[in-house]
Amino acid sequence: MSFHEKSAWVMGAVLLIAAAWYFRTVAAASAALGEVAPPLLPLVVGYIVLIIVLSIIAHILVAVTKPSEADDTLDERDRIIASRAGSFGGVLLGVGVLTGLGGYLFDYDGNKLFHIAFGAMMVAQLGEYAAKIWYYRRGVV
């Protein structure tokens, strides 16, 4: 398994952990308020910091397991995979944001729109990493 494939696995796991933490917090706050909780800057900052810290730790661990491949640059196959996976993530992001915007037209709930759009970003990133893993495993033609 190449360094870039390992990186996709760990980033997928890191994003899952961070997304679970974010939406668990939003769900708890929404339950306490009795409506969709407003977006909170500290929560968003916390989400970003959590991803940065976990991804640094995870990548150090991945690099330590095979130092000789840790500085591998993207080769032609990696670039094709990154491009295709990025396109897939872009579609997911577009669908998610359009879903949020469509919902806003019916209930004018800006808080919900924010969380859906933010969630769409998370899903798009997760989808991108999943697509990378798929192409690395199954081949890119």
Binding site: M1, S2, E5, E69, D72, D75, E76, R77, D78, Y136, G139
Partner: peptide, 8 residues
Amino acid sequence: VTRQTVIA
């Protein structure tokens, strides 16, 4: 290219 690409 990487070793993994040669394998692929």
